[in-house]
Design a protein around this nucleic acid. Structure first.
Lengths: 210, 210
DNA sequence: GAATTGGCCGACCGTTCGTTCGATTTTTTG
DNA sequence: CAAAAAATCGAACGAACGGTCGGCCAATTC
């Protein structure tokens, strides 16, 4: 039950008891970790929230760190897949930039718990696990940096250092777990459009904009 | 040596041995807490970095939580003082907004360690201490929200919900500890001007801009 | 120079942490 | 329905944590 891929579950619609439990554990862990932070949330906290003994949990992950890694890895992998899918499209850079921001924002702000882990607790991983996650993060940065570079060369961008622009955007999105709530009247998709407005008007010259 | 105010030190230029030690301890604590996070940094870590026994540290603060609170309180108090000083000035709202952003950014990005504590470890405080810090934070939010409200009423702002605009800005600045380094070619003051550019063009209509 | 204070040490305490292990119960398989 | 596998339990472990206490040493005060 702790193997990375479960062959029997592909293409089936009913979940076995163990699979249901696994999802329940992962979701609860993400929620608790996001609420109180990974390091201050104990395995005991998690087990009590689930109504299980803490020793029972170790049938679903190898260690607390492994649990965090699985949560982060699944989340980032899905995001990366969608993003690189979008980057492969043949779109004019300006439209690609806007689409990127809408996708990134809506996906991340749409799963507040996981984003919170990504932003706050990634450094709790050590050694290889940490390095692997950082490597995945760099692929995001490279993606948006590539798009912005095109815009710069086309003379469409203000005189702002590329990293400053990139991290201004990441800052907006990655800070959302601290304040944004889905049920507050603004959907993740709307938030994506709003960030697109702010960022595009913020870093682009209006030369070719409507 | 752990009293909140030290009468003998006011208006004197030389620091006693204990006062020097106190600063050394606070600065080292801020650095370590920022590097590895408050909860994962032990009193033992701090004592080893200082070359002292951990019991010795308790002459300078009452508890680990008290130490964090002092770091945050000093930092926020100084920031608030400067900000409310600026807000008291009779400036047109647009200039005030720009000045606010430059001040806020340069002050916060100028002390990466303390900002990191503020963003990441404020929730490690419990009860009254936490409530007091949150109350101070609200004064920032109220300040910038007030300015933006003026701009909105004057019809100078895009159709963006006020909280979204406010936290987009806070997001940019509060995310800087994750990537920004003073010696990377951009000074905190320059960064403030860049964020001003991005944010103002991002949320304001160009109607009354040069 | 004696008395007082502030700074520091080293040993120790109780608690909580993540993790392990063998036994037992529940579910799935043939 | 029996055998195999998966899931859960309860007790225990060593390590690390924040914090305390009494005594020692050096600096300051009178």
């Amino acid at each position: 039950m702790r193997e990375k891929t479960n062959d029997r579950s592909v293409g089936r619609m009913t979940l076995s008891k163990g699979e249901k439990r696994q999802r329940q554990i992962y979701d609860t862990a993400a929620r608790l970790f996001a609420q109180r932070g990974y390091s201050r949330t104990s395995i005991r906290d998690l087990s009590e929230a689930l109504g299980l003994q803490k020793s029972s949990l170790y049938h679903y992950f190898e260690s607390k760190e492994d649990l965090l890694h699985r949560l982060l890895d699944q989340f980032m992998e899905e995001a990366l897949q969608r993003i690189e899918e979008l980057c492969a499209l043949a779109l004019p850079p300006q439209e690609k930039l806007a689409a990127f921001m809408r996708l990134y924002t809506s996906f991340y702000a749409g799963d507040r718990d996981r984003l919170s882990l990504l932003v706050n607790d990634l450094d709790c991983l050590g050694g290889e696990l940490h390095a692997a996650m950082v490597a995945k993060q760099r692929r995001y940065v490279a993606a948006i940096q590539g798009i912005l570079n095109e815009m710069r060369q086309a003379g469409l961008m203000r005189d702002i250092p590329l990293p400053v622009a990139v991290f201004a955007f990441f800052g907006m999105v990655h800070y959302t777990p601290k304040w944004y709530q889905r049920d507050g009247g603004v959907s993740p998709e709307e938030l994506g459009r709003l960030f697109e407005t702010i960022f595009c008007h913020g870093i682009l010259t209006g030369k070719e904009q409507p």
